[in-house]
Write a protein that binds this DNA or RNA. Structure first.
Lengths: 181, 181
DNA sequence: CAGCTTTAGCTAAGTAGATTAGCTTTACGG
DNA sequence: CCGTAAAGCTAATCTACTTAGCTAAAGCTG
C-alpha cells in the first residue's frame, strides 16, 4: 500500500497525494485505508522514512570502493538520478526528521552519514567536514529542486550545467581548508 | 488582502494558507474573499508574482554599485536574509512561472536577470554565464531550503557554514572558465 | 470440525475547507 | 434623489479526511 502511495507521489507530487486517489488506485473505499495506515499525516511519515532509507542505500551503493573526486562524482550523479526518477519520494527526503520518531531520525541520519563519510575522504574533519557536507547537500538539492519545478528556463542543456556544478564542487572541496569565510 | 495572505504564508508556510484562516484574520466570512480574489489558486499566483517581484527588487538594491566578489557576496547574503525573514514568500518565489501569465513570466525573469547581470561582472558570457547563474541559484536556494526545513541538525553554527559556501562560490566563479566537466 | 479471533473490507455520518448563487447594504457620482 | 458598483452576507454544494460500528472471510485452536 505504501508502495502505491509512493508511485502516486512520484506521479502527482508529494503534496498532492490524497487518500481518495490512493483508494481509487487500490480499488478500495477510502475508509478501508485506515486499516493500514493511521491517516494522511501518518502516510506522509511512512513515505518519508522509506524514502530517506532508500536514498541512503542508493548513495551508499554508489560510493562503495570510491574516494575523493571519484566518490563525489558518484554521489552527485546517483543523487540527482534517483531524484529525477522518483520526484515524489525525493520531496519526502527533504523533510525535517520528526524528533519524536526514532525511525525517522535514524533514516535521516543514515542518508547524511553516507555523504559525510564520502566527503571525509577528502581528509576533512570536524567543522570542515560539517561545512562541506552541508554545502554539498545544499548545492545538489538546490539544483534538483529548481530543475524539478522547471526553474531552468534558459536554452542550455541542464545535464551540462549539472556536470559543471559538480566540477565546481570538486574544485572547492579539493581545497576546502583554504575556503574560508 | 494579499498583504495579509503574505503575512499568513510567512507564519504557517505557503502550502498551509487557507481561505478560512485568511478570512478569520481579516474579520470577514470566507465567501467575501471571492470579491477580491478568484479562489485559492489565484491567491497563490498573486503571492507568487508579488514575491518574485519583491525579491528581484531586494537583489537589485543589494548589488547596485558592486561588482565581482563584492556583488556576489551582497547577492548571496541579501538573498538568504530576505528568505529567512519571509519564508512563505520565499517558497512562493520557487515556483515555475505560469507560461500563460505574462506578469509571472516577467517577475521570474527579472529576479533571474539580476543574478545573471551580477555574475556577468565576472566576465562570463553565453553558456558560461548560464551555468554560473544556475549553479549560484542552486547552491543558495538549496541552502535556504534545507535550513528552512531544519535540515541542518549537526552542532555547528549555520551562519558560518553559509559564509563558507559563499566563499566556495567565489572561488569557483572566479575561475569558472576553468571549471569544466 | 466448531468456535473464536484477527483482518480487511464496507456503509453511514460528521467535520472542514473551497466554491457558487443570490441577497443586502453602503457609498458615491450624476 | 437615484442608480450602480463594491463588499459584505447566508445558504447550499462539493470534495476530502476521519470515526464508529457492522460484516465476511481467513486462520488458528482446542
Amino acid at each position: 500500500m505504501v508502495i502505491e502511495a509512493e508511485l502516486l507521489a512520484d506521479e502527482v507530487g508529494l503534496a498532492n497525494i490524497s487518500l481518495a486517489a490512493l483508494a481509487e488506485r487500490l480499488g478500495v473505499k477510502v475508509p478501508s485505508l485506515y486499516k493500514h495506515v493511521d491517516g494522511l499525516p501518518a502516510l506522509h511519515r511512512l513515505v518519508e522514512v522509506r524514502a530517506k532509507s532508500e536514498i541512503a542505500d542508493v548513495l551508499a551503493r554508489a560510493t562503495v570502493g570510491r574516494s575523493r573526486d571519484d566518490a563525489l562524482d558518484a554521489l552527485a550523479f546517483a543523487y540527482r538520478d534517483w531524484a529525477r526518477r522518483h520526484p515524489g519520494r525525493y520531496e519526502a527526503t527533504v523533510t525535517a526528521p520528526s524528533a519524536d520518531d526514532p525511525s525517522s531520525m535514524e533514516a535521516s541520519g543514515r542518508a547524511v552519514g553516507v555523504m559525510f563519510d564520502a566527503l571525509a575522504g577528502y581528509g576533512l574533519t570536524g567543522d570542515d567536514a560539517i561545512d562541506a557536507t552541508r554545502s554539498f547537500r545544499a548545492a545538489i538539492h538546490g539544483f534538483i529542486a529548481l530543475e524539478a519545478v522547471g526553474g531552468f528556463g534558459m536554452p542550455r542543456d541542464v545535464d551540462l550545467t549539472f556536470r559543471r556544478l559538480v566540477a565546481a564542487l570538486r574544485l572547492s572541496l579539493g581545497e576546502w581548508s583554504r575556503v574560508s569565510a
